[in-house]
Amino acid sequence: MKKTAFGFALGLAASILLSGQTPGASLEVTLRLTTPGLSPGAMVMARPSSHAFSVRGRRLASEPPPAERIPEWSEDRLVVDACAPDGRRISRISVIDPRLLRAEAADENGRMSTQNLYRTEVEFTLALPADPDIRLLRLFQPIWDGRAFELVLLGEILLEAGR
């Protein structure tokens, strides 16, 4: 059974390589986000202001990437633009900020209190459309100004062709 599945996945990979975008499939990209100047295992109370990204892995999956009918953001999420080499946006997704750690606890009456912490090093995986034109990822932090979200660029990552 495993052999069959392996063959299927290889076939899927081959079909994407040969024919370009495969509708319904996704490209999974695993990223590492680190905070220069801070030790990798540390937690900090303020959202880090400097970032470094690296690609840890890529693979194809047969599932379509998840889609929101009406994209909704929050400051607890990251927005990711998947772009062509010329910067043209092909897809936009948002994911829960993988750095965020909510330390919430309740007292004996159930009343809550919290402390938000941020990891200085995380790995997370994005599901993007399986489009071979995607060569550049732009990651943004949405910042709410009371009326709308402003997207602050955290970093850009080049995806090497065929990697």
């Binding site: 999974e28 695993t30 693979r59 379509p64 998840p66 995380v122 790995e123 995986t125």
Partner: peptide, 17 residues
């Protein structure tokens, strides 16, 4: 360790799921 969580997830389920 969220990196280890992510590694397990990547071995087990598609990211879309």
């Amino acid at each position: 360790n969220t990196t280890k969580v992510n590694e397990v997830l990547n071995r087990s389920l598609p990211a879309a799921q």
